[in-house]
Amino acid sequence: MNCIVLDTATEWVALGVYAHGKLWQADAHIKQGHAEYTLPQLRQLLEQAKLSLAEIEVIVVGNGPGAFTGLRIGCGLAQGLAFAHDLPLMPVSTLAAVAASTDADYPLVAMDARMGEVYFAAYQADAWQQPIVSPQLITPAQLPALPAQAWTGCGTAWSAYPEPLQHALQDHQLTISPVAVPTSAGLLRLALSGQFSTVSAEQLSLLYLRDKVALKTHERR
């Protein structure tokens, strides 16, 4: 399955082209440069892989949650690319992509969502579509009850909110992984799991989790 993998919901761009069983990747910490970075790198990857867009079968795209503007850059690019060739998009959760970027059996993903909150999810590796805790927006102090497992913490929140998170998990066996963001290898692992379905470019929906972004007029009174 030749595919492009892309996630721009963090300060990194996870970008790869998978062809003939090999992954060419251009993951990079670009902070706010997603728009400038992505397409020129994709052009290079396609050249390296000696692949044309017409030979791509699916575009795997992280659909959040994450930084809103960055997320939309990757999703917008993926929509445009897919629409051009009537290609299917395979949306995967950015949190699952972080989890799949570790080699942990029980990844516990916590991403810094700013404003004192985290995007949180818990997985059993390779059961990506049946998360133990589905992606949600919570404060570190409000972590949901977790079954007893040897958890591996991953994601940006473990360095942003180390104390409240570790305190909330003090009764659990916990290792902190250095993996903080999704990688192209993680995205590819999700795609190759066969657990995710595809949609058309127009059907792509984004997972923001933070839906209250402004007050309505009557709420301000």
Binding site: A35, L39, F68, T69, R72, G76, L77, G80, H85
Partner: peptide
């Protein structure tokens, strides 16, 4: 609006790249 401009720009560039 920066974020709004980025949406149209991303889709336009993705589509043009693809075509």
């Amino acid at each position: 609006l920066g974020g709004a401009l980025l949406v149209g720009s991303a889709i336009a560039n993705g589509l043009a790249f693809g075509l």
